[in-house]
Nucleic acid binder design. Structure first.
Lengths: 220, 220
DNA sequence: TCCTTATCGAGAATTTTATATCGAGAAAAA
DNA sequence: TTTTTCTCGATATAAAATTCTCGATAAGGA
């Protein structure tokens, strides 16, 4: 590869493993900020979280910040850089579909604004819930979803309905012009090209745990 | 590497990506079982979930089942094989710490037995909650956690407390002899060697979504 | 001022994970 | 029966992610 070709290389998309680690750095960094520390090294972060220092540096590099030898990274700057990179500084309005126990819990978790998410409305089919509010978020009829999503230019939809209803919920969100879906239903959603789906399925995480545990116990 | 060395290679641990995909196969397979289908090919699974057929076959291989040319895999057998592999057939008793909105939602989700988990008790510091039950699970004082975990030989602890209380909860669970922690608090837990921690942090999943969405929108 | 130490960041090497290729075998069609 | 088609599973290749190596550089002593 010539030098010119090297210069022309397109910017690589951020690896997903990197994206998943960044929030973990962020939590640690916010903790360190409280303690009054001004800077932190990749070595320290790595030891604290059980990663490799080079990996931490490479991850941080994606966010666009530069460190300095001997001292490392400025904590405040690094926090800002990660939040910026994840787009957690621009609070995005979102719809939540399904106000069962998980949906209710999510509406009750007051911190999503720290992660760039703001629930402006929730939707449900249950007549008992429509018209009420859950933790200050109004619950509306599903029939209003498409039109309202269009008018409000909503980009993110969160699906917390049971599996059988998930595809229909997704279809409505997409019809309403949604760009990204955070799916908690244990099912694979079929969506047109251009619509992002992130599956937050707990069972995936649980699978890792139960398998490894069984493995560990079998070795006792 | 000589042939002998090759033969002596130790059995590799299952890759985490594989463990995360297996539950997705399982959900699809259970759906197919309902429709009455008897067998399914890796090609079909792959197309349905957007994976590569070879990858699906490799994943399935880990669970120990063999398919047959032209028809693929027996659905019932495959379901059983995956569940066995993830240890979801042996229901494991678990403690849940923290009965806030998320903890309550989890106790309310009646399906964890399908994933090998059974909540036998929940713990909280809130005097108002102690002594009551949430969806049939008794809520006990944190003071009883260690002793009860020891006596009941509990292996899995689920942490759904706020971040500031998570490490203390983990310490108690570990003192009680727990082997694996499913952590929902946005914090890195420090645990001794041998204790498994699986972070189910929603923020990690959300980071992937918000970053990619911002990226996609910026390209419009 | 010079020396020692800790760290970054670039690039190489390694490991892990994903995808492609292809022979063999089973089912269905001819 | 023979041919065609589809799929598995073994092996090879490619891509992605992680880890190692090392020169450069800033900070804090000696």
């Amino acid at each position: 590869m010539t030098k010119t070709e090297k210069t022309n290389k397109k910017i690589k998309a951020t690896p997903e493993p990197t994206l998943r680690r960044l929030p973990r750095y962020l939590h640690l960094l916010k903790f360190l900020r409280e303690t009054g520390d001004k800077s932190v090294s990749s070595t320290y972060i790595a030891k604290e979280l059980g990663f490799d220092p080079t990996q931490v540096r490479k991850d941080i590099e994606y966010t666009g910040i530069v460190g300095r030898p001997k001292t490392g990274f400025n904590i405040v700057e690094l926090i800002s850089s990660i939040e910026e990179f994840l787009n957690w500084k621009n609070i995005t309005d979102a719809f939540l579909v399904g106000t069962g126990s998980l949906g209710t819990a999510m509406l009750g978790y007051g911190r999503f604004k720290d992660y760039g998410l703001n629930f402006v409305a929730a939707f449900d089919n249950n007549e008992m819930k429509i018209g009420k509010t859950i933790h200050e978020t109004p619950v509306l009829s599903m029939e209003k979803l498409v039109d309202l999503a269009k008018r409000m230019h909503i980009n993110i939809g969160v699906i917390t309905v049971p599996a059988f209803a998930a595809q229909h919920s997704a279809d409505l969100l997409i019809e309403g012009g949604i760009r990204a879906i955070w799916n908690f239903a244990p099912i694979h959603l079929k969506v047109p090209e251009g619509v992002l789906v992130e599956n937050a399925q707990l069972t995936q995480s649980l699978a890792v745990l139960t398998h490894k545990l069984a493995d560990a116990i079998s070795k006792d």
